[in-house]
Design a protein around this nucleic acid. Structure first.
Lengths: 148, 148
DNA sequence: ATGACTGCAAAGCCTTTGCACGCAA
DNA sequence: TTGCGTGCAAAGGCTTTGCAGTCAT
């Protein structure tokens, strides 16, 4: 099910980039628009591959550079899906988000959300001597298909 | 505060390795013993550096190979502390464990534990269509020192 | 004696950096 | 016009693999 592009996030992100002093470059805009079309995490290399075969091809360096900038501004969140594989997912300004269960055999990823879990994390974040900006929860094991 | 070595875990791990059909090699044993001396996560490269300057020096490959084997057997848990930095922590057979808050600026790591959080995760693990074997929670932000 | 275990060095992989050219402002 | 943005190729950094010698069993 190819989800529709989150245009609100595109505008939000482009505005934030501009506010941060970045110019409106072509590659950067394409990366933002492409991320907006994914509801769940994408690997950096997967995104690169996807953009490599576009009409005005986007260079790998631009993909990585843009992802870094977006992460720095809190517009996307980075996490490691599998060994050494960086994945990125856009951050919803509303704060609403999900987490992932990842299959250690095939890499399949399932998203889930739980208010109780979020509450627990919020509570713990207050108890720790850190200014917590984000959190990440990953469940690892075998997906239905690999377990059987 | 250099914690004392967890000898119970060493025996547990060595026995599990033997049961899995591994022979009792020198390098492997040293890696296990060294891990037992760390109460919190160690990076693979840090462990390598630590073992490199031992009397019978342990090779880097052996460190990585052993960590893989231990992870496969569920004796240690692997997670990404900072960008592209693999960290390992021994798994207590009792199931008792902690999670981490990591400073995005200096990398400082603080461990914390919370029963409510564990309960939330256990509940969510049951709701997901996965055979969840382990979970990982990371809080990212600024540590007290970097925030001020 | 047999095959696993090791260390070293080389290769792999993902990611980052250097540089010259193009484009936004 | 200025200097940020971009693509390409090269370099980096962590991890894995190939191989020959060594050691456990």
């Amino acid at each position: 099910m190819p989800s529709s592009t989150d245009t609100a996030w595109v505008e939000h992100a482009l505005a934030a980039l501009q506010d941060a002093g970045y110019r409106r470059g072509g590659a950067r805009t394409v990366v933002v628009e492409t991320l907006a079309g994914h509801d769940c995490a994408v690997t950096a290399l997967g995104l690169d591959e996807e953009l490599r075969r576009r009409k005005p091809a986007v260079g790998r360096a631009s993909v990585y550079r843009t992802l870094d900038q977006l992460e720095e501004l809190g517009l996307v969140q980075r996490f490691e899906a599998s060994r050494g594989i960086a994945s990125y997912e856009r951050v919803n300004p509303s704060g609403h988000h999900h987490h992932h269960a990842i299959c250690r055999r095939c890499g399949r990823m399932e998203a889930f959300e739980d208010r109780g879990l979020e509450r627990s994390i919020a509570r713990v974040s207050d108890q720790v001597a850190f200014e917590v900006a984000e959190h990440d929860v990953v469940l690892r094991g075998l997906c239905e298909r690999c377990a059987s």
